[in-house]
Design a protein around this nucleic acid. Structure first.
Lengths: 187, 187
DNA sequence: ACCTGAACACCGTTCAAGT
DNA sequence: ACCTGAACACCGTTCAAGT
């Protein structure tokens, strides 16, 4: 029954999309939520905790959606590719959410860390299924998952910064680079 | 003859290393530089321009160092690997500089963009040398460079966020992941 | 338990002067 | 041309009250 807390989180997410983490002011959040400018302090100890709440909430929604994507795929290799594409599509659409979730945190947030390791686990499982189906070369599933996630994050970061699409002759957008990696992983 | 400008840049870089971009306050910079709190406005139009100046200056130094790394290597493949390692080592040592340079910018900064494309060109040339020596599989050099740089950036971001070393059984640190990629690129 | 209003220290930025 | 001091609007955070 924490509808007030959720109202605050929704307001913060709205401001985050509009103008990034710096744009998420306690006063702005409170105004959208219809509260006094320091009411959020009764629900979050400070601004960083509020942002961590937004990040964890969004990441859980994303992870659930990705699980759905896997379930809807016809075979393990397609599932892996769709999982990656899904992640990229979301990141490009909501760059501020993506950066907030995977960016730097001053303090460790348990809730966010849990959500992140769940996402990682999903990638590891997707890799494990492809590998046990004999579609990709032998290796450690966790390490291959780290390789794929790192590439996705880096490619997204470069794409958001305009360092990718601009200069490549080939289709060096995030999806293209992920395709390259998956092709090289194939046996 | 812009020693004042350089003094300001050095002061800003110092604060950046200590406490990130938010820690770079105009007042703090001016104090370290021995100026009044708004003297920097005579050299940079606003805070973002100041940070862009810091980023461009640091990236040029880095690119020169990387060029030296290449020149000092015995063969093209070693040069490529050392180039990547060098970049990773620097990023892990100066996370705030790394994030500033390759992170998000509100405004486009010509100087920084130039420095960044020079860095990219260095990677492309390193790839081209390895490829023309027949050490890695055929492909587009720019796209392969984008693949490698994306992986490096993403792995660094994940390592800095504590998402890499923690859960991997295998040695899934940035260097290890880059090794994996280069191994897969080999013919 | 939850919310409010006033207050504090800090920040980026602007402006009218000074040399 | 370069620097200064005062001022403005804004921000995160704290605190004493209110219900």
């Amino acid at each position: 029954m924490e509808t007030t807390r959720d109202t605050i989180l929704a307001a913060a997410a709205e401001l985050l999309d509009q103008s990034g983490p710096e744009g998420v002011t306690l006063r702005g959040v409170a105004q959208i939520a219809g509260l006094s400018h320091n009411a959020p302090y009764k629900h979050f100890r400070d601004k960083e905790a509020l942002l961590a709440g937004v990040a964890a909430r969004e990441l859980r929604v994303r992870t659930a959606a990705m699980a759905g994507t896997i379930a809807a795929s016809s075979d393990p290799l397609t599932a892996l590719r769709e999982l990656a594409y899904d992640h990229i599509r979301w990141g490009l659409q909501y760059p501020n959410r993506f950066r907030l979730i995977f960016g730097r945190w001053e303090r460790h947030d348990e809730d966010l860390a849990d959500a992140a390791s769940e996402t990682l686990r999903l990638f590891i499982e997707a890799i494990a299924l492809v590998r046990s189906a004999g579609k990709i070369r032998p290796g450690d599933n966790e390490r291959t998952a780290a390789l794929l996630m790192s590439l996705i994050h880096g490619a997204m970061e470069m794409a958001l910064g305009g360092h990718l699409s601009a200069e490549g002759k080939g289709r060096s957008d995030p999806q293209g680079l992920v395709d390259d990696l998956i092709d090289m992983l194939k046996m």
